[in-house]
Design a protein around this nucleic acid. Structure first.
Length: 640
RNA sequence: GCUGGCGUAGCUCAGCUGGUAGAGCAGCUGACUUGUAAUCAGCAGGUCGUCGGUUCGAGUCCGACCGCCAGCUCCA
């Protein structure tokens, strides 16, 4: 029997009989692994466990904890759901049913039948029933003609349309139980692996995402190998609802939206405190790192956008204004205007890098349907900057930016994750420069010992970039910061240059970067991250004094004055209410500290401290508390 | 922008098949003088998103528009 050699992730190489399957390999390692295995990655492709290997290659057994395993699991779940739907609603036509970041969906056409929540639970029950039969997912390769005739017979126009685009490809079908679907796979071994199922929602979705096509019903669902994992997931969904910044923003008087300005918040005094803390923080950090702050016009003539290319590529997102037969636009980005600051003088190689920061307000005409709370607004305050440097300075600049981003996020307890996006096919500019730049980015990431994901061909047309995502307190990921190199858009279109050492004129490289991204969005994110309980340094109200009776108001005022003089954002609650009432009230407002003062405190010059969410932490001398809270604020300590 | 749902007091919400609006909280006034998550009583507060239509009569039915929410799309 001929053999093949398989290389494992740890580098070990083992020999197997030709035709061995992933499951055979898993079994040969351990029965536990065979039980957990969902799919395999063979030479970089994800395959079913049952497919045979006929050649040497690298192999990884994929489990639930691997993305590939999860995707196969959810993809198989989508098929299971389709089987349940077909048995309950015969005649349903199927669109596509892929795995997504959290779960899966299937787009279906049921004619006039609109799915109700009851239908969802019926389908869910049917799915559970089907899993009990524990039937295998079987792959079958078919000729294109056979595939077409199958779906012609079945009468499924969507699958036929998909097949029309697959003429030269290998066509594979997957069967499980009574269900057959056109599918590239891979799938998990059998339906019995799916243990916990939840169908989450139904929404309309156009066939192939085009509003010209028919609208199908999209059912979203999620499944897990363990019930507990499903419960945790559902709990997190609830938790996300509880933390919704739109709700908290209103309750905590941070900001409001009004019909009069869709997509633009009204910042209330308390929200503005958070906003200003972020501004202060970023300005301090940038000052320390050699940035120079600029401010450029909000409204400029369209000529600028014609030069930058935005007029042809971004016009529908710009707000236009006519005046005296001239067309102006509110700026959707700062970059083109920053070049005017650069070009204000003839620059020498000695001047570089020039780091121009701008906390400017931008306006982008987002589609009305895309707006959503602070996460998608039309009026954006960005912590933008453009760094102009020589090609040989790319590495050190990127290095500094990685340090800046990591440092700033750590103050919020947010963990950054880095993605390196390289040259897309339409990438413009000198290929050699691309290569060098990508190497610099990589080197900077590696020098900082940063694990990153490579996103090939995902860069902008004008240069490679590092996108930074953060993970919040309940495990959600947000795209925030970005570091983009630019060889084309600013340097070339705006004819930027500097005088090099040899007297020649050279083109600088521009780096577009943002740390918070937009203040609006970032404040939305941290509001949810902290569930409204901001750390003391960010909290709009940092402490409140609660006198027990009228007799203690004078002393309470004294406490208030001392803390206010110490720079603490403090309030005095001298309402004629019981302490219980006040405590409840301020607890719901998520104020970090309450200082209860009565007879004992008055006579002892102390305060009884109650910490948000922790409760009474005891009495201490006023001076001690002032020291405590001031140092907590200065060190930006995160309590929760 | 597209599809669907929704829009009643500052907030959260009730208002059956059409008969000119109601609660709790918040606010204000008064009483109570209070020790770690809601003291009691009273008062005030809405042209029911906007405009138009049907009807003797519209918060309730119909249409258009605006906005919000979910999803799609877009994201130089």
């Amino acid at each position: 029997m001929p053999t093949i050699k398989l290389t494992f992730p740890d580098g070990s190489v083992r020999e197997f009989e030709q035709g061995a399957t992933g499951l055979d390999v898993a079994k040969s390692i351990s029965s536990g692994l065979a039980r957990e295995a969902l799919a395999v990655e063979f030479n970089g492709e994800v395959w079913d466990l049952s497919r045979n290997f006929f050649q040497n290659g690298t192999l990884k057994i994929l489990k639930w904890t691997d993305d590939g395993g999860k995707f196969a699991y959810w993809h198989s779940s989508a098929h299971l759901m389709a089987e349940a739907i077909e048995s309950l609603f015969p005649g349903t036509r199927f669109g596509i049913g892929p795995p997504i970041e959290n779960g899966f969906y299937y787009d279906i056409d049921m004619g006039d039948h609109a799915l109700s929540p009851d239908d969802l639970s019926t389908i869910e029950e049917k799915m559970y029933e089907l899993t009990k039969r524990d039937v295998p997912y079987v792959r079958e390769e078919k000729s294109w003609d056979d595939a077409v005739s199958y779906f012609q017979k079945k009468g499924d126009p969507y699958k036929l349309e998909l097949l029309a685009g697959l003429k030269d490809k290998t066509i594979s079908f997957y069967h499980q139980g009574n269900f057959t679907d056109l599918c590239y796979g891979p799938h998990i071994p059998s339906t019995g692996r799916i243990k916990a199922i939840k169908l989450l929602s139904v929404a309309g979705a156009y066939w192939r995402g085009s509003e010209k096509n028919k609208m199908l019903q999209r059912i979203y669902g999620i499944t897990f190998p363990l019930k507990k994992e499903l419960d945790d997931y559902l709990f997190r969904l609830e938790e996300a609802k509880r933390r919704d910044h739109r709700k908290l923003g209103k309750e905590l008087d941070l900001f409001v939206f009004h019909d009069i300005a869709p997509g633009a918040p009204f910042w209330l005094p308390k929200g503005m405190i958070v906003f200003r803390e972020l501004e202060k923080l970023i300005r301090e950090e940038l000052d320390m790192r050699g940035y120079q702050e600029i401010s450029t016009p909000i409204m400029v003539k369209k000529d600028l956008w014609e030069q930058s290319g935005h007029w042809t590529h971004y016009q529908e997102n710009m707000f236009l204004i006519e005046s005296e037969e001239t067309t102006y636009s509110l700026k959707p980005m700062n970059c083109p205007e920053s070049t005017f600051v650069y070009k204000h003088k003839l620059r020498s190689y000695k001047d570089l890098p020039l780091r121009f920061s701008e906390l400017g307000r931008l306006h982008r005409n987002e589609l009305s349907g895309a707006l959503g709370g602070m996460f998608r607004v039309r009026q954006i305050t960005m912590d933008d900057a453009h760094i102009y440097c020589r090609p040989d300075q790319i590495f050190s600049e990127i290095n500094q930016l990685i340090e800046l981003v990591t440092h700033v996020y750590s103050m919020f307890g947010l963990k950054p994750m880095f993605n390196l996006a390289t040259k897309p096919d339409k990438g413009m500019g000198d290929p050699l420069l691309w290569e060098k730049a990508e190497a610099s980015l990589k080197q900077a990431l590696e020098t900082n010992n940063i694990a990153y994901k490579l996103k090939p061909k995902d860069g902008a047309f004008y240069g490679p970039k590092i996108d930074i995502q953060i993970e919040d307190a309940i495990g959600r990921e947000w795209q925030v910061a970005t570091i983009q190199l630019d060889f084309v858009m600013l340097p070339e279109r705006f004819h930027l240059e500097y005088v090099a050492e040899d007297g020649s004129r050279q083109q600088p490289v521009a780096i577009h970067r943002a740390v918070f991204g937009s203040f609006e969005r970032f404040i939305g994110i941290i509001t949810e991250h902290f569930a409204g309980s901001f750390p003391t340094w960010l909290s709009p109200i940092q402490a409140v004094v609660l006198p027990i009776t009228d007799a203690h108001v004078d002393y309470a005022k004294n406490v208030f004055d001392c803390l206010a003089a110490g720079g603490v954002r403090i309030e005095l609650d001298d309402r004629n209410e019981k302490v219980n009432y006040k405590i409840r009230d301020w607890e719901t407002k998520k104020v970090p500290y309450m200082l209860v003062v009565g007879e004992k405190e008055k006579s002892g010059g102390s305060v009884a401290v109650r910490q948000h969410k922790k409760g009474d932490i005891g009495m201490m001398p006023l001076g001690e508390f002032i020291g405590k809270i001031r140092s907590e604020i200065a060190q930006k300590i995160i309590t929760s």
